Amino acid sequence: MIEEEIEMRLHVEVQGNGSPIVMIHSGGVDSRVWRYISPDLAQSFQVITFDGRGTGRSPAPQQPFSLVEDLRTLLEQLQLDRVTLVGHSMGGQVATDFTLTYPSMVERLVVIAPSLTGYTFSPEFAAYMASVNAAAPDISKLTELSLAGPIYRATMASPHRDFLHEMHMNYMTRVFTEWKSFDVQWPEPPAIERLEEIAARTLFMQGTIDWPDMHNIAEHFSRVPAIQFSVIEGADHMLILTHAQQLADHIRHFVKGELDDATNPGRK
Rank of each mutant, 00 (worst) to 15 (best):
E107T: 03
K141M: 03
R252A: 15
Y128G: 03
P159K: 07
I112V: 12
Y171T: 08
S222N: 08
Q245I: 09
V22I: 13
A199N: 08
L109T: 02
R9M: 07
F182T: 12
T99L: 15
T143G: 07
G234M: 04
A218M: 06
M238F: 15
F45Q: 04
M1I: 09
W211L: 11
F98S: 08
D81S: 14
V33G: 03
I251Q: 03
V111N: 04
H168L: 05
D30C: 03
P39M: 07
V86P: 03
P64K: 10
L74R: 00
R161W: 06
A148M: 01
F204A: 04
R72P: 11
E233C: 07
I192N: 09
G54E: 03
E166N: 08
P59C: 06
W34L: 04
A136M: 05
F254I: 01
W179S: 04
G54R: 01
R108Y: 03
T177P: 01
Q46T: 14
Y102R: 11
E188F: 12
A136N: 13
L116N: 00
R153K: 14
L116H: 01
I37S: 13
R57W: 09
T117P: 10
F221T: 02
D249S: 09
M167F: 10
F98L: 13
E76T: 15
S66W: 10
G118P: 00
Q246M: 09
E166P: 08
V184I: 15
R252Y: 12
K256S: 14
E233G: 07
E3I: 01
G266H: 09
E4C: 01
D183G: 09
L239G: 00
L67Q: 13
L78F: 14
T155G: 13
R153A: 10
E4S: 04
D162L: 08
S146V: 12
